[in-house]
């Protein structure tokens, strides 16, 4: 898994490439907690290149949201594939995250 973070008009766009699983989640977790630690107001996770995510990946996203909410921060998901959508749905956590078709949409769109 590879993680790249860039800032665009104050929004952190985190592009993830590869599987997010029990082995790789800790790395994603530290990247994201750094952002919430800085109180970044909006985090867009580009999931377009994530073929697979397990419970630890979902839990990492949920924890990021839990850290962002108290300061009014937002976490948006962009371009999740069908595997990622499926596990979100199976965990009954679909409603937690605004989901956008692309990073551009996530940057533009209202929550």
């Amino acid at each position: 898994m590879r993680i790249r973070t860039r800032f665009q008009e104050g929004v952190a766009v985190v592009s993830i490439e590869g599987d997010v699983d029990m082995y790789t989640s800790p790395e994603l977790r530290s990247a994201l907690s750094e952002l919430t630690g800085e109180r970044v107001p909006r985090i867009v996770l580009d999931l377009g290149a994530v073929p697979f995510m397990d419970s630890s990946g979902i839990a990492t996203l949920v924890q990021t949201l839990k850290e962002a909410r108290p300061y009014g921060g937002e976490v948006r998901l962009a371009a999740p594939g069908k595997n990622v959508l499926r596990i979100l749905e199976l965990s009954n956590l679909m409603a937690l995250f605004p989901i956008h078709g692309s990073v551009e949409e996530a940057l533009r769109g209202e929550a």
């Binding site: 029990m22 082995y23 989640s25 800790p26 977790r29 630890s56 839990a59 990492t60 924890q63 839990k66």
Partner: peptide, 9 residues
């Protein structure tokens, strides 16, 4: 068996 942090666990 994992290195996940406590909050995620």
């Amino acid at each position: 068996l994992t290195k996940l942090d406590e909050k995620v666990i």
